[in-house]
Amino acid sequence: MAELFQTGAIVNIVLLVMAAEALAILWFPRRLVAPPSLRPFAVSVAANLAAGAFLALALRSALRAEEWPFIAVWLCAAFIAHAADMAARFGPALLGWSRARRGRALSSTSHLTPGLGGSDP
């Protein structure tokens, strides 16, 4: 068991389990949901699993005592995948929130600028 950790082979096992999980997560909903409505879910799942896989690869590099730039590359890739996951999950909601807030800001100051709503004297 110690050899699995010393060589980083444990990460290969984890990556195989993650690949099986990805197939299961993406295959089972297709049986229940129409594919067009599955696209945002699939993007989020793929980005989430990619972030986890990149973190696992960074762990493997550290267990193998590789040079720090290799670990840094995996960690940067994990961050990019995580950012893509967050954008897929919350991007539309955040854009909608900022538009609504901007609209309220304009309507609350419309009385200061003639012709932008409200009643003109």
Rank of each mutant, 00 (worst) to 15 (best):
A2T: 10
E3K: 15
E3W: 09
E3D: 07
E3L: 14
T7L: 04
G8A: 05
I10D: 15
V11C: 10
V11D: 05
I13M: 10
V17T: 09
V17C: 03
V17D: 08
V17N: 04
A19N: 10
A20E: 13
A24H: 06
I25F: 09
L26I: 05
W27N: 07
F28Q: 10
R30Q: 14
R31L: 15
R31M: 14
R31K: 13
R31V: 12
L32Q: 14
P36N: 06
S37L: 15
A42L: 02
V43C: 06
V45M: 15
A51F: 07
A51W: 06
G52C: 10
G52V: 00
A53Q: 07
A56Y: 06
A56H: 01
L57T: 01
L57S: 03
L59P: 00
L59E: 05
L59M: 14
S61D: 12
S61M: 11
A62M: 13
R64C: 10
A65Q: 13
E67K: 14
W68F: 12
P69L: 12
P69I: 04
A72Y: 10
V73L: 14
V73S: 11
V73F: 12
C76E: 09
A77G: 10
F79M: 13
F79L: 15
I80C: 06
A81H: 01
H82N: 11
A83I: 02
A83F: 12
A87Q: 12
A88P: 01
A88I: 00
R89S: 02
R89M: 07
R89D: 00
A93S: 11
L94W: 07
S98P: 01
A100N: 08
A100C: 05
G103K: 07
G103Y: 02
R104F: 06
A105D: 09
L106G: 03
L106D: 08
S107I: 06
S108M: 11
L112F: 08
P114A: 13
L116N: 06
L116Y: 09
G118H: 05
